[in-house]
Simulated scan of single mutants.
Amino acid sequence: MDLRIFTEPQQGASYDTLLTVAKASEDLGFDAFFRSDHYLKMGDVDGLPGPTDAWITLAGLARETSRIRLGTLMTAGTFRLPGVLAIQVAQVDQMSGGRIELGLGAGWFAEEHAAYGIPFPKEKFARLEEQLAIVTGLWQTPVGETFSYAGDFYQLTDSPALPKPAQVKVPVLVGGLGATRTPRIAAAYADEFNVPFASVEDSERQFGRVRKAAEEAGRKGDDLVYSNALVACVGKDDAEVSRRAAAIGREVVELKANGLAGSPAEVVDKIGRYAEAGSSRIYFQILDLGDLDHLELISSAVGSQLG
């Protein structure tokens, strides 16, 4: 089971805070450090000092880390033109020495688009399909050849399709709980399929849909990595679990029902149930980025049993 750290910086985190958490994640042996791609806080937090851009952050982290993989859950397709995104991700992959992964989603948070003057189109999923086709198509075009694309939303003519990433294949992540379109998109473009904040039963059901869609597209179901993202609240004892839950404004009972919460033994047991449902990678959503002891406990008491 791969264990990864997933952060939500729009809730209030500077680049320096993210750098501290990324370095700690690397030192503690986690497989990857991922972040969300949002420009507006959610819920009852002040969000200070304000948002940080996902790909600018990852470019900085690429130069400040050496082993850990870096990526997004998920880059919002509404934020960037696909040709520009392909350049950005390829460059950051070069800066990292080939450690970047691209999670790309349709975009969903209308309020942040309104707050920063970003268009919020109705046909987001149709645009996402074209974006995935363009980004992957640009990277796959051999050096010296050109790439053209004539879609309903995007048109590229004789693109030199440069630069190329350092990796031969940058892993592409698609995710969600849509029953039909999401599995089909994943089957066409994804190396990993992520189910965010869902039960074991819903995850198993969605993994099955994606496996079926992959097979219908001529791929093997096992060609994809299947993963879950879940909020983490782990403590050595009940008091520590309660303290960590209070720090993120959540209730222990709710966190145990919907996330990875409780003692290390409880969390290991629940991860085992996700593994039985088909998951081989867990993203721990860490909401209190000042609590590095939380990362250390997850690494030493959970990761040591699952490595």
Rank of each mutant, 00 (worst) to 15 (best):
7 T>S: 13
112 E>P: 09
200 V>M: 01
201 E>F: 06
72 T>W: 00
243 R>I: 06
190 A>N: 02
131 Q>R: 13
13 A>K: 03
125 F>D: 06
72 T>R: 01
100 I>Y: 06
111 E>K: 15
220 K>F: 14
303 G>S: 10
297 L>D: 05
229 A>G: 12
76 A>F: 00
209 R>E: 11
76 A>P: 05
57 T>C: 06
91 Q>T: 15
285 Q>H: 03
147 F>H: 07
278 G>T: 04
67 R>H: 14
120 F>Y: 15
117 G>N: 13
178 G>Y: 04
97 G>C: 08
141 T>I: 05
181 R>H: 07
99 R>I: 09
133 A>I: 04
193 F>P: 01
194 N>D: 00
201 E>M: 05
70 L>H: 01
138 L>W: 04
199 S>A: 03
40 L>G: 02
7 T>Q: 04
210 V>C: 00
247 A>M: 11
232 A>K: 04
91 Q>G: 12
283 Y>C: 05
8 E>C: 01
299 S>T: 02
188 A>D: 04
64 E>H: 13
215 E>C: 13
167 Q>E: 13
178 G>N: 04
10 Q>S: 08
47 G>H: 07
14 S>I: 10
254 E>R: 12
72 T>P: 04
294 H>C: 07
205 R>V: 02
76 A>Q: 14
159 S>V: 05
215 E>V: 14
13 A>V: 01
42 M>K: 13
196 P>C: 05
79 F>S: 04
137 G>S: 06
147 F>L: 05
153 F>E: 11
284 F>W: 14
216 E>Q: 15
229 A>E: 12
199 S>I: 08
193 F>V: 04
65 T>G: 08
68 I>G: 02
18 L>N: 12
167 Q>Y: 11
303 G>K: 07
17 T>C: 03
272 G>N: 12
300 S>G: 15
41 K>C: 03
222 D>I: 09
274 Y>D: 09
195 V>F: 01
236 K>A: 15
259 G>R: 07
307 G>E: 12
34 F>M: 11
130 E>V: 10
250 R>W: 14
220 K>E: 15
12 G>E: 05
110 A>C: 07
187 A>W: 00
115 A>M: 03
278 G>D: 02
30 F>A: 02
236 K>V: 15
177 L>F: 01
139 W>Y: 10
208 G>N: 07
87 I>H: 08
159 S>N: 11
77 G>T: 06
57 T>K: 01
89 V>N: 03
185 I>S: 00
173 L>D: 06
3 L>P: 03
179 A>D: 13
133 A>Q: 05
79 F>R: 02
154 Y>A: 04
123 E>Q: 15
249 G>M: 08
195 V>I: 11
162 L>P: 02
221 G>V: 04
58 L>K: 01
68 I>K: 02
175 G>F: 00
158 D>K: 07
181 R>I: 10
2 D>T: 13
10 Q>C: 08
180 T>D: 05
208 G>M: 09
63 R>S: 15
85 L>R: 00
151 G>K: 10
23 K>G: 06
157 T>D: 13
147 F>V: 07
101 E>L: 12
286 I>G: 03
203 S>A: 14
171 P>G: 05
104 L>K: 00
22 A>T: 11
31 D>G: 12
28 L>A: 10
134 I>L: 09
293 D>E: 15
6 F>V: 11
85 L>V: 01
247 A>E: 04
109 F>D: 09
261 A>V: 02
